[in-house]
């Protein structure tokens, strides 16, 4: 047995490039900052400008409305953040959101718990179906959740007689408080949303489930080989997404005092946009809930500003969001290439 072996000449003649030039490192740093905090930075800049330019913007009333309006989308986008970090996508949330609202209104005839639990049960179940399809049958999340999008929207139309019946919530004041209650001048939904985001952040960063989520999205085959419960994690994340969308629907119903059937069309795309603008990688494996929160706020602030201008078509909001989304995706692309 030879003990005097030197490493083969192979290695010695191989040039060893340094760990990347300083310039590249600098570029990566800027890109990383833009990626993670881009939404927050742009949000603050836009806020500052709007505050100065539009007298109507900085008023307490306007800011309250802004915060309240952002809450409903933010809760949906929170679930979407988790799904996207896991490497998936959930297109069903817009329909599930609307369905949640109708079910809450429908269930309010059985009191507070009926109004709250009926949407959560059904929407959680839809999420479970999504999760099982994605995790157990290896169906593409895009397809699986597109199917449940149609399913949820169909169910909604069926129970409302194609939208002809609108269920009102008038006999349960406690449930209405969820959407209409006010504390220190700020609506309950804002507090609920903040609480959910804190919980979401803890879930992501401080629990094994959260870590498994990042690992699954970051490299699924590695996660499997490391012995992580990949399938269970995926199922859980779609259930959470369904629950959050359904809850947001219930909260909206409480706010509007009825189950409105026409909401939620295309909301899944708004949620995805907010998540991506918030710095979560669309390819999975990286992201933050706080980024998503700023993504949602940014979208609504731009909408609000366009309303302030008044003369501008409201559709310009989409134009601005779309442009910003493009920038973010390009930055993400550059960043992930820098990593390779």
């Amino acid at each position: 047995m030879s003990t005097s072996t030197t490493p083969t000449g192979f290695h010695e003649s191989t040039p060893v490039p340094g760990p990347g030039s300083r310039e590249a490192a600098h570029r990566r740093l800027v890109a990383g900052l833009l990626q993670r905090q881009g939404a927050a930075l742009v949000f603050l800049a836009v806020m500052a400008v709007a505050w100065i330019v539009f007298p109507g913007f900085g008023t307490t009333g306007n800011l309250r409305t802004l915060a309240l309006q952002s809450s409903f989308l933010a809760v949906i986008a929170l679930g979407m953040t988790l799904v996207i970090i896991s490497g998936g996508i959930d297109l069903s949330v817009g329909s599930v959101y609307a369905l949640g609202g109708v079910l809450a209104a429908y269930g309010s005839r059985w009191g507070f718990f009926g109004a709250l639990l009926l949407p959560l049960a059904v929407c959680g179940l839809i999420g479970l179906v999504n999760g099982l399809l994605v995790a157990r049958t290896a169906m593409a999340p895009f397809i699986a959740t597109l199917a449940t999008l149609l399913f949820a929207r169909g169910l909604l139309l069926a129970i409302t007689g194609e939208g002809a019946t609108t269920y009102k919530i008038d006999n349960d004041q406690v449930f209405l408080e969820i959407g209409r209650g006010v504390l220190f001048g700020v609506g309950y939904p804002v507090y609920i949303t903040l609480a959910l985001f804190v919980a979401g952040g803890v879930l992501l960063r401080r629990t094994r489930f959260g870590q498994a989520l990042f690992a699954t999205g970051g490299s699924e085959s590695s996660a499997v080989l490391m012995g992580l419960p990949v399938a269970r994690t995926k199922i859980m994340v779609y259930v959470l997404s369904g629950l959050l969308a359904g809850f947001s629907g219930a909260m909206t119903a409480a706010y509007l005092q009825s189950g409105v059937t026409v909401i939620g069309v295309g909301t899944e795309l708004d949620a995805i946009a907010a998540v991506v603008i918030g710095g979560t990688l669309l390819t999975g494996g990286a992201g933050t809930v706080i980024g998503t929160l700023f993504g949602v706020l940014l979208r609504n602030v731009i909408q609000n500003i366009i309303n302030q201008i008044g003369t501008l078509d409201g559709n310009f909001q989409s134009v601005v969001s779309g442009a910003f989304l493009l920038v973010v995706v390009v930055v993400q692309r550059t960043l992930s290439r820098g990593r390779r």
């Binding site: 490299s219 590695s222 494996g285 990286a286 990593r339």
Partner: peptide, 8 residues
């Protein structure tokens, strides 16, 4: 092939 998660 290293089977870890590069982003983490």
């Amino acid at each position: 092939e290293v089977n870890l998660v590069p982003l983490m």
